[in-house]
Each structure stands twice: as C-alpha cells, then as structure tokens.
C-alpha cells in the first residue's frame, strides 16, 4: 500500500485507486462496456429476426397478429414504469433517502415479477396452441411458410430477454438487501446506479422487441 491513500480512509476505495472519483469513473466505464457487449449479444438475435422477416414477410406479419397484443402492451407499460421507478430509486439514494430508495426498488422488483408472470401466461398459451419453434411447430392457424421461424425467433428473443429480466431482478433484490442494511448513502451509491443501468438495458431491449414482435 502506498502512503497516498492513508489520509483518505474510505472503506469503498480499493488500494490501487488514488481517489474514489477515479474508482467510480472506472466502475461506470466498465458497466457501460458491459452494456455494450449486451447490445451486441442482442444484435445477433435482431439480425436473425431481420433476416427471416426479410425472407418470410407474410408469415411474420400473420404470426405477429396471433400474439396477445394486450399482454404485450401491459408488459411494455410494466417495464417502462419499472424503469421509471428504478431511476427514482437512484435519484432517492443520491439524496440519501434510503427508505424511498428501498420502496422504489421493491416496486421495481414487483414489476419484474409481473412482467415474468404475464410472459409465462403468454408462453403457456403458445405451448397449448402448438405455436412452437422449428420442428415442434404445429399451429393450425398460421401455416404460411416461415411461420415456424417466426416462433423460433420469438421464443429465442423473448427467452433471452426473460433471462435478462431474471438476472436484473436478482441484482435488484441483492441491491435492495444492501439498501435495507444501510450500505448506501449519498456519498456511496454506485452499485444502485449500476444495477439501475442494467435494468434500463432490459427495458431498452424490450422497447425494440415489442413493436418488432407484436406490431409488424
């Protein structure tokens, strides 16, 4: 340990950083880089979507009409609202309002559960109808060539997204537990911020998935 950080005893400052500002800068940059990798991960799926939509325009149009639009809209509203609440949680902890922050996080987590529940019900309907991907496809109402690929893309994209919802929710639950234990204050709130950023990314992906899957 160098002597330079001896006069600034901050329990959150790692030994190889000079100042907490520099560390926060590094952590935020790391998070944005990670979000960049997530963007490219989903880019591959969006590529699959665009390619097959290009091939099977009619089938995609028809199949998208057989999704439950209201479930999609509800989920969109739920996710947008949860995005708002997680932003408010960050805003609250920045001002040291721990209780407000905890409340907002709880609301966000409830939204996440709601989203997953609605998604689960949607999946259940599709399973019953036989609107399954690839070789499992036996949905009688949409028989246009390529409809099976629509459901392949649908399940892969929403499945990967749902996985991210679960991960994001777990992160938020962990952060909530730390908020409740009083780990954060107006002088140290970076984990809340990063967890929030991740959750916004989940919202971002859905913002694109919703019109592409339900509305085209």
């Amino acid at each position: 340990m160098s002597s330079s950080d001896a006069h600034a005893p901050n329990p959150h400052l790692a030994h190889h950083y000079e100042t907490i500002e520099k560390q926060d800068y590094a952590v935020r940059l790391g998070m944005w880089l990670f979000l960049g990798t997530e963007v490219l991960l989903f880019a591959g799926l969006f590529l699959g979507y665009t390619v097959y939509r290009h091939f099977y325009h009619e089938a995609f149009h028809e199949a998208s009409r057989h999704l439950d639009l209201w479930a999609g809209i509800t989920n969109t509203v739920v996710l947008i609202t949860s995005s708002l609440s997680v932003a408010l949680a960050y805003n609250a902890i920045k001002q040291g309002k721990t209780k407000l922050c905890a409340g907002m996080l709880i609301f966000t987590i409830v939204c996440a559960f709601t989203f997953l529940a609605i998604k689960g019900i949607e999946y259940h309907h599709k399973f019953q109808e036989g609107a399954l991907p690839g070789k499992w496809y036996h949905y009688a109402e949409v028989t246009a060539p390529g409809a099976n690929l629509y459901y392949t893309v649908y399940f892969l994209a929403t499945g990967l997204h749902a996985f991210h919802v679960i991960v994001g929710m777990s992160i938020l639950i962990w952060i909530l537990s730390r908020v409740l234990r009083g780990h954060f204050s107006e002088s140290y709130y970076v984990p809340v911020e990063l967890g929030g950023l991740y959750w916004h990314l989940v919202d971002l992906v859905w913002i694109f998935l919703f019109p592409l899957l339900y509305l085209i």
């Binding site: 699959g48 070789k135 499992w136 690929l149 392949t152």
Partner: peptide, 21 residues
Amino acid sequence: VGGFGLFDATRGGDPVLFEHM
C-alpha cells in the same frame, strides 16, 4: 438439441446466416 430450424434450410432457415455470424 431443440431443432429450432434457425440454420436449417429444410425448415426455411439459412445456413449462410450462421457463417455470417
């Protein structure tokens, strides 16, 4: 594992897409 047909030409998929990715 699942036979989703994404890169399978017999199910309408495009194997060249795999090569691109």
